[in-house]
């Protein structure tokens, strides 16, 4: 038993060494060296990323990913992820960047680094017409569907009354399906997602009940990658200045960026 413990201890030390070794590599250099950037995007979160009839993702996040790759002059590999696993993808170096309508919060800031914002986003609680809720307190005793690990999930956990029955689903697909199939009558999600559902499924069009948080989208990257962070920020500022970012907003949100966004 003692020997086993010793052996396990050794393995852990070696493993720790290996991962520490990994962490010191400069991702920006790696990207340039392999001439390829791997970017995580959502595929179940319209209008940020959803699939077309060819099953390829499309949306704001996908356009943003393509823009970054083009500006860096490298090839791109689009990696579809879910809300729950996008940060592990980054931590385990399966991708270089996460452009997946990622909101910022203190828990996440401990685990990864963020760029400046690239798209506006408001979180709220939405639901069917017959649910009368107008504030977070009035959620008491009701059931709300939410995607596990999302900012709205953490907000609900922090501010909602204890008696709220929060049903957490693995990905946005499942959360939306739960709402549309009537398994939950209220969901916490982004304003744009709710609008998208309304256009797709007018019968179950979710009404806006109240706002949870102003939570613009950031690009996520592994901790300590300052060179990469600087480069991504530079590209966002450039797109903001030359109107490219606004074009993306017009294309997918049918509205220009709010005044003063990202300044």
């Amino acid at each position: 038993m003692k020997r086993l413990a010793k052996f396990l201890g050794k393995t852990l030390i070696i493993a720790a060494g290996l991962s520490a070794l990994n962490a010191t590599a400069d991702v920006l250099q790696d990207i340039k060296k392999r001439d390829l950037i791997r970017i995580a995007v959502p595929q179940d979160f319209p209008p940020f990323g959803s699939i077309g009839t060819d099953l390829k993702p499309q949306g704001i996040d996908v356009d943003m990913a393509n823009y970054i790759a083009k500006e860096m002059g490298v090839d791109i590999e689009i990696v579809p992820v879910t809300s729950a696993n996008r940060i592990p993808y980054l931590q385990t170096k399966k991708v270089d960047l996460v452009i997946s309508s990622l909101g910022k919060n203190p828990e996440r800031e401990k685990a990864i680094d963020f760029s400046t914002p690239y798209a506006p986003f408001f979180l709220g609680v939405f639901g069917s017409k017959d649910e009368s809720v107008s504030s977070i307190e009035e959620l008491a005793g009701k059931t709300v569907g939410v995607t596990r690990g999302s900012v709205e999930d953490l907000e609900l956990e922090k501010y909602a009354p204890k008696s709220v029955n929060v049903r957490r689903f693995e990905d946005n697909n499942t959360t939306l399906t739960a709402y549309l199939s009537g398994q939950v009558n209220l969901i916490a999600t982004g304003n744009l997602v709710a609008t998208e559902i309304a256009t797709r499924q007018p019968k179950r069009a979710p009404e806006s009940k109240f706002m949870l948080k102003d939570s613009p989208c950031y690009i996520g990257m592994a901790e300590g990658e300052t060179a990469l962070q600087a480069e991504v920020n530079r590209l966002i500022q450039k797109a903001l200045a030359n109107g490219d970012l606004n074009k993306i907003s017009m294309k997918w949100l049918k509205a220009p960026l709010p005044k003063g966004f990202g300044v």
């Binding site: 940060i87 996440r108 957490r168």
Partner: peptide
């Protein structure tokens, strides 16, 4: 497991 993983990122 998934909930804890989404809170402290210790997958």
């Amino acid at each position: 497991a998934n909930l804890v993983q989404s809170r402290n990122f210790r997958a």
